[in-house]
Amino acid sequence: MKSSLHITAVVVSFSRIKLLKRCLAALSNQTLSPDSILIVDNASTDGTQQWLRDWLPENLPRAELVSLTDNRGGAGGFSEGLRIAVERNCSWTWMMDDDAEPHPTALAELMKVASDSNNVYGSLATKGADTSWTTTLLDPPKRVVDLAADVPNQSRVQSLPFLGFLVHRDLVMKIGLPDADYFIAADDIEYCMRAERAGSKLIIAGRSLIEHPKSDRYTAKLPGRDLICLKLAPWKRYYDTRNRLLIARKYYGIKLFTQTIPGSFVRLIAALIYEPRKLAQLWAFTAGMIDGLLGIKGRRHQKWGIPQ
C-alpha cells in the first residue's frame, strides 16, 4: 500500500548492525510502505556500511545509504537525513534510531492521525505492554502514563522523541533542521520546543507502535515531588547535563537558575547514590555544567577525557 504523499523514513545508525537489520526488516514489512528510506550511518566500525552496500540493492531497493565520514551522533545524523529528505521535496519524514522495530501497521496508523502539516506527530515506543519511557499526556485529564494501553489513539504530549517522529517539509522550512551540535541527548526536546514556538502541536498516535528497549530509569524522592532520572554512562551524563542547560539558556529565562541548575544538581546527587563510577559521573557532570553554562556545543566528551 502506498500513500499519495511522498513519505521518507530516516534511520540513523552507528555500529549496531544486528539492530539495524531488524529495523530495516520491520520497515520493509509496513502495510503502508514509506516511498523511500535513508539510512544515515555515523561512520560505523562494525561493517555496517559494507553490508548495506551489498544487501540494499537486492533486498530493499528503495533504501539508500548516506555514509558520514565521522560520527556526528544522533543529532547530526537526524539533521543530515532530514536535510536530504527536504531537499528532495519529500512531504513527510518519519525518523527513528536503528534500535527501533516498527509494528507492521505503525506508519499506516500514524498517517491516519497526521492531518496538519504544521503539527509534529509521533509513534508510541513500547516494550511489550509498557511504554519505553514515561509519557506525559496533555489532553484532559493531564496525566503521566507508563502503559501503552493508557495512551489514546491521539493526544497532545509534552515532547516527542526522535523515534517514530513525523514532521512535514513545510514545518522544517519554517523552523529549520535539528541542531546537529547537540551530538546526543535532548536534541529532540529542543526541536519540539522550537516547533511549539512556531505554533505546532505535538501529537502522539497511540496505535502507531514501535518496539524499543525500555529506558533504565529510577525515581529520586524530593520534598513534594518525585524526579525521574535515567541511568547513564558518564559520557552520556556529560551530554544530558550540558544539553539541558543549553535548552534552558535558550528557552527558560530565569528558570535556568531557579529550576534547571538546581534540578541538575539533584540528578547528580541521585547518580552518586544509585549509579556506579561515581568519580566519573561527577567529572562528566562538572564538564557538562561548564560547557552548558558557557553555551559550548559539539562533540566534546573526549576533549574532557570522558571515555565512551
Rank of each mutant, 00 (worst) to 15 (best):
D170S: 15
L138F: 10
M173N: 15
D139W: 11
I228G: 06
K174A: 07
L230S: 09
S155C: 15
R194K: 15
T136A: 10
G224S: 11
D150I: 01
L137H: 01
P213N: 11
R143S: 12
V151S: 05
H168Q: 07
L147Y: 04
K142P: 09
L222C: 13
M193T: 13
R156V: 14
F165I: 10
G164F: 00
K142A: 15
D187M: 13
D150V: 02
R169C: 04
L230F: 03
P152F: 00
L222P: 02
K201F: 07
D226G: 08
A220C: 10
L138Q: 14
Y191C: 03
D226F: 06
K231E: 04
R217S: 15
K201D: 13
D187V: 09
R207K: 11
D188Y: 04
I189A: 08
E196W: 04
A185P: 01
L230P: 00
I204C: 02
G224F: 13
E211N: 14
G176M: 12
V172R: 08
C229N: 05
L160N: 03
D170I: 03
L137F: 05
A205E: 00
L160P: 01
D139T: 07
I228Y: 00
M193S: 08
D216T: 14
F165W: 05
R207Q: 11
R217D: 13
R225T: 12
M193I: 13
L160T: 05
R194P: 03
K174F: 03
A149M: 07
Q158M: 13
D181C: 08
L166W: 06
L147I: 02
P223I: 04
P161D: 11
G199F: 04
L227F: 11
L222E: 15
I189N: 08
C229W: 00
L209P: 03
L202K: 03
L222R: 12
K201I: 05
S200N: 12
F165E: 04
S155E: 14
P140T: 13
V172D: 05
I228M: 09
L160F: 05
S200W: 05
L138T: 12
I189F: 08
F162P: 08
G164N: 06
